[in-house]
Simulated assay, not measured.
Amino acid sequence: MGENIELTVYGAEVLCPSCVNLPSSKEQYEWLQAAIGRKFGESNVTYKYIDIFNPPEEGPYKEFAERVIEEDMFYPVVLVEDEVVGEGNPKLKTVYKALEERGLEPQA
């Protein structure tokens, strides 16, 4: 498998109002990287963290960051490619399933 899968986490330093007892977006981003690395090894996953209040100027990232704010989505919002696979408190099973659907295989 030669193609990279992009996993993007949209979040903020400030916890979302409904996520008071959860880790920060950045902590969940780092946790996802570690968990995916353990299950799939050093795989073909490219990770991006986007601060919703200070997104890069690149079109799709900026537009989705604005959508997270406008639609009051719970963050972090986790995307695998362009599919939302987690919001607020992402579930590993859901993220793993999305990665496997795109061809990643767990390491033995």
Rank of each mutant, 00 (worst) to 15 (best):
M1Q: 06
G2S: 15
G2E: 14
E3K: 12
E3N: 10
N4M: 14
I5F: 05
I5C: 08
E6A: 15
L7E: 09
L7T: 09
T8D: 07
V9A: 14
V9D: 07
V9F: 12
G11M: 04
G11W: 06
A12N: 12
A12R: 11
E13I: 07
V14T: 10
L15K: 15
C16Y: 07
P17C: 07
S18L: 04
S18I: 01
S18Y: 04
C19V: 04
N21R: 11
P23L: 07
P23Y: 10
S24P: 05
S24H: 11
S25K: 06
S25W: 04
S25H: 06
S25C: 07
E27N: 12
E27G: 05
Q28L: 11
Q28R: 05
E30F: 10
L32N: 05
L32E: 04
A35P: 07
A35F: 07
G37M: 08
G37W: 02
G37P: 00
G37A: 10
R38D: 15
K39N: 14
F40M: 07
F40T: 08
E42D: 12
E42A: 11
S43F: 01
S43Q: 02
N44V: 00
V45R: 10
T46V: 14
Y49N: 01
I50H: 01
D51V: 02
D51F: 03
D51Y: 05
I52V: 10
I52Q: 01
P56Y: 08
P56E: 08
E57W: 02
E57S: 15
E58Q: 10
G59N: 09
Y61P: 06
K62H: 10
E63N: 14
E63K: 13
A65N: 03
A65Y: 02
A65H: 01
A65F: 04
E66P: 03
R67K: 15
R67W: 02
V68W: 00
V68Y: 01
I69L: 14
E70I: 02
E70R: 15
M73V: 05
M73W: 06
F74C: 15
F74R: 15
Y75P: 08
Y75W: 15
Y75D: 06
V77W: 05
V78G: 07
L79A: 01
L79K: 15
V80N: 03
D82H: 11
E83T: 14
V84Y: 05
V85W: 13
E87K: 11
N89Q: 12
N89H: 12
P90L: 09
P90W: 09
K91P: 02
K91V: 10
K91R: 14
K91N: 13
L92M: 14
L92W: 09
L92N: 13
L92C: 06
T94W: 00
V95Y: 01
V95H: 04
K97L: 05
K97E: 08
A98S: 08
A98N: 01
A98H: 02
E100Y: 00
E101D: 10
E101I: 00
R102L: 10
R102C: 00
R102A: 07
G103W: 10
Q107V: 13
